[in-house]
Amino acid sequence: MTKLAETDQLAIEARALNKRYKDQDAVSDLDLSINRGSIYALLGPNGAGKTTTLKMLMGIIAPTSGQCSVLGQSSTRMDSSVYQKIGYVSENQKLPDWMTLEQLLRFLRPYYPNWDKDFLNKLLTEYDLPLDKKLKAMSRGMRMKTKFLISLIYYPDVLVLDEPFSGLDPVIREECIDGLLDWSQVGNRTALISSHDIEDVERLADSVGIIEAGKLELDEEVDSLKERVRRVSVVISENATLPPSLPSGWKNTRTNLRNIEFFDTHFDPDKSEQLIHAILPGVERVTFEPMSLREIYVALVKQNKKEIGGKYGSQIHN
């Protein structure tokens, strides 16, 4: 058994993880390191490989090759001692529909030594969930809240959430987030949240990974990402002719008459402006605008693809 030391920094780890279905790669060569205490958002469009990745981490499906572990224990050989420390919430997860919530809670309780009755009562009130209702009679929102409830009340060290907010109305979404934030306040708890909607998770997460077509294209702390990327507009005195080579940190440089726009991916408040004046002729005005995570995603991931793909080859200046 590949058991890492209890003091290990990483809560979740994947090395060269691959999943192949017939002749399609669902996940390819994915490396992931999620620190304890982190709330990590795994973002990407539907079908990018998010669910497959999470299922491999949870030991629900086996990787074609590569390794992954949660709390130092290999995902393919997890035992109940690890399951007690992990919570998993998925949009598609099945619930025992014939049970009432009360029956479900009574069934689950013996499996979890950390079961917290006070937290349970608090959540039951906040979520406004009826104990005597059969799960199959519950609305989509109530079912999702039930999934949150049964995953939070034993204070798992690691929570893995697969598209937890998708299709939820805003009030229920907020209730789920409150529960999640309550859980995460104490100790060194780690959450991995997948979402196709960046805005759903951008303030919850301290780190993000962006997955596209099975590959992890970006993996960084949210704050550092927001600090290093800017949308730059430059106005110059004459019609723009760009120098043949531009700094590699400038992405997607576009020109129109006297305007030049690009994304500066190595923004430095002390140096970036100087650099622009040194490189571009006749600079009259420079503006740097911070960008939202969604804009950064489009700028770094989508744009990068286009450039590599050569589809817009004639516009590449770096």
């Binding site: 205490g37 907020e174 934030l181 995460s184 306040q185 303030r203 919850l204 997460a205 301290d206």
Partner: peptide
């Protein structure tokens, strides 16, 4: 905790 909950931001 209050700050994190009110603004829905990461506790860190």
């Amino acid at each position: 905790r209050e700050l994190s909950r009110s603004l829905k931001i990461n506790p860190k």
